[in-house]
């Protein structure tokens, strides 16, 4: 059973502090949490802290062990991260990329089993025909799916996704989120994803955390968190999330708010 607790995380790049005392609700097995927030609010930085790519202060405890004291080996086995940028458009084939990550991480699988697993994961993401095509010939959305495949192939307990749907078309946006939900129902684990599609986050996530200027502005069940006030305060838009039918909320974007509508204290970057 995966369990993740994150509290009081502070992170900085050089002298510039970008995360201030970020605490997430405790994440139990099967949870899917969406991190929302405008550009530059610290979503990617939070993912980097959670994957230990960036060292930070605060406590991140995965399955009862502090993240900082996990061995790299244990971390690799449990956590997979999809960075915001998709795989580079080189002459490498998706198949070779997936193959090399599994071998680099020392997965104990025969060549045959590994081939089959790669074929399954690529098929799941609609990349059957691209398995042996150079990454440079793939579209941005296809490469983003290769990036997701790179995480899924490792079958992690904790899946950290930085804007996994950003480059995807409508079909794959829904498909990928459905896939994540189905995977959670199937095998458990915890998923944390940075998302910009507020309506999809409200539909698929168990909870959302809204970041603004590196601080948690609001956290909790989507319907409670995503109010008109939060949209105005954090995103500087007039917008409303309609509940919709069958748990399919829709976002009505009305207009951007000019800077005089922004509450003063929120645009203060020093944050202190």
């Amino acid at each position: 059973m995966t369990h993740l607790s994150v509290s009081g995380v502070c992170a900085r790049y050089g002298r510039k502090q970008v995360l201030f005392d970020v605490t997430l609700p405790d994440l139990e097995d099967g949870h899917f949490i969406g991190i929302l927030g405008p550009n530059g609010s610290g979503k990617s930085t939070l993912i980097r802290c959670l994957s230990r790519e960036l060292s930070c202060q605060g406590s991140i405890v995965l399955d009862g062990v502090s993240l900082a004291s996990q061995s790299s080996r244990a971390l690799w086995e449990k956590v997979a991260t999809m960075p915001q940028s998709p795989p580079a458009p080189s002459a490498l084939f998706p198949m070779e990329l997936l193959w090399s990550i599994c071998r680099a991480l020392g997965m104990a699988l025969s060549d045959r089993a590994l081939s089959q697993r790669i074929e399954e994961v690529l098929a799941l993401l609609g990349l059957d025909d691209q398995a042996l095509a150079p990454l440079s010939t793939l579209s941005g959305g296809q490469r983003q799916r290769v990036g997701l495949a790179l995480c899924l192939i490792r079958d992690p307990d904790l899946l950290l996704l930085d804007e996994p749907t950003a480059a995807l078309d409508l079909h794959w946006r829904l498909t990928v989120l459905e896939l994540i939900r189905r995977r959670l129902a199937h095998r458990g684990g915890v998923v944390i994803a940075n998302l910009h599609e507020v309506d999809l986050a409200a539909r698929y996530c168990d909870g959302v955390v809204v970041l603004g200027h590196g601080k948690v502005v609001a956290a909790g069940p989507p319907a409670e968190v995503l109010t008109k006030e939060v949209f105005a305060r954090v995103y500087h838009v007039e917008a409303e999330l309609h509940p919709g039918t069958d748990n399919r909320p829709s976002l009505e974007l009305i207009r951007p708010l000019s800077s005089q509508h922004r509450p003063k204290h929120d645009s203060d970057p020093s944050g202190s």
Binding site: S72, L75, A80, P83, S90, A91, L92, S100, I101, L150
Partner: peptide
């Protein structure tokens, strides 16, 4: 290092976030 170098052709960001030093 063949696997790590191959992986690196998929971009440094991917390698870093996969936990490669």
């Amino acid at each position: 290092h063949v696997w790590l170098l191959t992986l690196l052709r998929g971009g440094e960001a991917q390698a870093r976030s996969s936990g490669i030093n």
